[in-house]
Design a protein around this nucleic acid. Structure first.
Lengths: 136, 136
DNA sequence: TATTGTTATACTCTATAACTATA
DNA sequence: TATAGTTATAGAGTATAACAATA
């Protein structure tokens, strides 16, 4: 088994994405769409810039992402009060319903992705990943 | 900071790939090309199937990968003695030189990728990643 | 001047299926 | 029948630059 962390991360990430996509396929969602819905569900909506920062995407990729969700009437873009440049992504009724309906999927996928990591060490693993991607 | 392991792995992986590509750019190599050279450097060469398995790529992607390296005269395809279906990837003189010349890059990239993980815990982190991607 | 979002584009990567030659 | 490699192709993702509106 290789100990090259670049290769290991690439393999782990692609396996995790495959697991997420398999679980979300019945709902016609990709991992990043689902993550965006969950981000928008917390609080009063979220700016596209924040989605880009959290998911590690280019802002231009978030435009396409939100376009998809808007076409499916799962989210709406609202102009942020206080800064008219910023668009806040908020859930529609249908979006709220979908998030509620799929609330257990995120945990299921996490457990499946880390199935080979002893349960007692998963918190530790996630904490180290958080350190690695940056302390914000 | 999110604790979603799918998102964290995606971010970590893309950051690691960016670091690897930045370090390898002067040599005109991508991470997967460099990894393949190092795999071929160990032992009597490596079958394309093995490259696919180690790097987590589809075999058809490895064809393109090896084509690139062959065009640059860094590797050769040799028919495996004992199984004429299998092509063993072996380094040319130029390939050997390049691997020697860049022998410190892999370690440098690893250190850079895990810069925010305490040095004493990096071994642990890599071990958990190895568990996660599968016990082979 | 700097930031948010947008459009357009070129490039890379991924996934799949069909094919060959060998076993 | 099964496996290693190959070809072709469509779809998804990535990276970049330029632009409008707003701060």
């Amino acid at each position: 088994m290789t100990d090259d962390v670049v290769i290991l991360l690439a393999r782990a990430s692609s396996a995790a994405l495959r697991a997420a996509h398999a679980a979300l396929e019945p709902y016609g969602l990709r991992a990043r769409h689902y993550a965006t819905l969950r981000l928008a569900a917390a609080g009063q909506g979220i700016a596209q810039r924040q989605v880009a920062a959290v998911l590690g995407l280019d802002p231009s990729a978030v435009v396409a992402l939100v376009d998809d969700l808007e076409k499916r009437r799962l989210v709406r873009r609202r102009t942020a009060p206080g800064d008219r440049r910023t668009r806040l992504i908020t859930l529609t009724e249908a979006g709220l319903d979908l998030v509620a309906e799929t609330s257990d999927i995120a945990q299921l996928v996490q457990a499946r992705v880390m199935a080979n990591v002893p349960e007692s060490r998963r918190g530790e693993f996630v904490a180290m990943l958080q350190l690695l991607v940056g302390g914000d």
